[in-house]
């Protein structure tokens, strides 16, 4: 027990150390530092403007009004931001494999999946989390939830957002790990497309087969619509159970894929 706790603290320390290193690295070039933050903030504003334009034409989309839909967009922002701030290596994963740069990470006495995931974090994506949280609070103030109900719903929401992060991370890991076999394949575009699609209420997919697909193997609905639903629609523990089961499955499949891929890793000549 004591050893496990020590191990967890050690991994947290390593994670924080990498976060610090990534921040220092970004801050080493002042103009680039401000430009990157600026472009992320601008992108977030564009998402909101786009939503506002849509709701300028219609009062609701499949039962979601503007403030409720805003929480979906904000949730997607939070998940997106959390993934890129903490483990951005999937964007460049195939380069590490092709150039043999994964070598130095594999030599370290730390879990290889953990190290590969957290050794790069894009600190400039932090505003996504911050703006996302502000938008969630703004959306909630315009809805009629007060007192304990709001607290319970918010706890459930945070839990579902955590699951969404696990699902998004594992989904990206599975796609990125394909590069162990194909060497020069970037599947980042597909994982990014899933994140982009998650910004829309998943109820727009009305067919039964699409609902099943997007809440299981292609987990678009689980990333933002499910957490937002728990916060502003039906208070349902089944949503939590569903999301948790999918998150656990994705996590173990992702880990299995990564480990299988590592066995195929052939490095590159020096």
């Amino acid at each position: 027990m004591k050893a496990t706790a020590r191990k967890i603290f050690r991994y947290i320390r390593i994670f924080l150390k990498f976060q610090k290193m990534n921040f220092f690295q970004l801050a080493a070039y002042r103009p680039g530092f401000f430009m990157m933050f600026g472009s992320v903030i601008l992108l977030m504003i564009l998402h909101i403007v786009f939503l506002k334009v849509v709701f300028g034409w219609v009062s609701e989309v499949k039962g979601w009004n503007f403030h409720e839909a805003l929480i979906i967009v904000a949730s997607a922002m939070i998940v997106d931001g959390a993934i890129w701030v903490s483990c951005a290596h999937f964007r460049v994963f195939q380069h590490l494999i092709r150039k043999g740069s994964l070598d130095s990470l594999l030599l370290k006495p730390v879990d290889s999946q953990f190290l590969t995931s957290v050794s790069r974090g894009d600190v400039e994506d932090f505003p996504r989390i911050f703006i996302g949280l502000i938008l969630v609070i703004f959306g909630l103030t315009n809805l009629d939830f007060r007192g304990w109900e709001l607290v319970l719903r918010f706890i459930e929401y945070i839990f579902l957002i955590f699951n969404a992060c696990v699902i998004t991370y594992s989904f990206s890991l599975i796609l990125a790990s394909i590069a162990f076999w194909t060497i020069n394949t970037s599947n980042y575009a597909l994982s990014d497309a899933v994140l982009r699609a998650s910004q829309f209420p998943s109820d727009i997919f009305s067919h039964e087969w699409s609902k099943t697909l997007f809440s299981t193997v292609l987990p678009i609905a689980l990333i933002a619509t499910f957490p937002a639903k728990a916060l502003v629609k039906d208070f349902d523990w089944l949503i939590v159970a569903h999301s948790t089961i999918v998150a656990v499955c994705f996590f173990f499949v992702g880990r299995f894929f990564f480990k299988l891929g590592l066995k195929k890793y052939s490095s590159a000549s020096s």
């Binding site: 080493a28 740069s101 006495p109």
Partner: peptide, 25 residues
């Protein structure tokens, strides 16, 4: 490996040493 770099390119050398301290415990 003489042809591969494990130090963080844009940071002072001591930062990479400190990171290794955490990694190797």
């Amino acid at each position: 490996m003489g042809q591969k770099n494990q130090l963080w390119w844009d940071l002072p050398v001591i930062e990479s040493f400190s990171l290794n301290r955490s990694i190797y415990d």
